[in-house]
Design a protein around this nucleic acid. Structure first.
Length: 188
DNA sequence: GGCACGATTGCT
DNA sequence: GCAATCGTGCCT
């Protein structure tokens, strides 16, 4: 399992390193999981695409807390989105989980809303530590061939910040949006 | 108290 | 292309 201190590092480094790790959801019925193939880093408060761009509010309070916790919010009144809080306490950084390669019996996870539906993640998990048994991360030793970075999805309102290549992907048929040839730079 | 809009998704 | 649907942030 990835220790909470794993998240207490520079956010872009954490996002890169998390690609390929397993996200595990534990419930009374058993465990379900998927492999992280698409993540986005949000580096508030300077990052205009971040919810923390307007400082501490009731919603963003979790991002200002200790790293290694879940930040869950509702978008469009319909869908939940799951984030991991990163960096030092007091720095409102977070990593949005956008897609998983689904494990056994797990439904479609190509998109932040679908993923939360597939793993039964909702607002009740906001602020929860990323530790067993409910929600945690595991390194199964499988190293990604490459990590591709592209601009983030759905943040055009953020102006120049929308152009930052802070979406991290492992090439997969389960991405929320396909990678375009020539987009981003491979590494790792 | 009221209003505009959103880190999305699925149907036309 | 667009409706669904409601919490949040910001204004009065």
């Amino acid at each position: 399992m990835l220790d909470p201190d794993y998240f207490r590092r520079p956010t872009l480094q954490v996002a890169h390193d998390l690609i390929g790790k397993l996200l595990v959801r534990g419930e009374p019925g058993g465990y379900r999981w998927g492999r992280l193939v698409e993540l986005e880093a949000y580096l508030g408060p300077d990052d205009r695409a971040s919810h923390a761009a307007h400082g501490v509010t009731a919603r963003t309070r979790v991002m200002y807390g200790p790293p290694g916790r879940a930040y869950v919010y509702l978008v469009y009144g319909l869908h939940h989105c799951l984030n991991f809080v990163t960096c030092e306490e007091g720095v409102p950084h977070a990593i949005l989980v956008r897609a998983l390669d689904p494990g056994p019996g797990v439904g479609r996870c190509a998109g932040p809303g679908l993923l939360c539906r597939a793993l039964d993640v909702d607002l009740t998990m906001n602020g929860s530590p990323l530790t067993p048994p409910s929600l945690f991360l595991v390194d199964d030793g499988v190293t990604p061939d490459q990590v591709v970075q592209t601009p983030r999805i759905g943040v055009a309102y953020a102006g120049a910040w929308a152009l930052r290549p802070w979406r991290f992907c492992l090439p997969s048929p389960h991405l929320s949006r396909p990678l375009r040839i020539g987009a981003g730079a491979g590494s790792g």
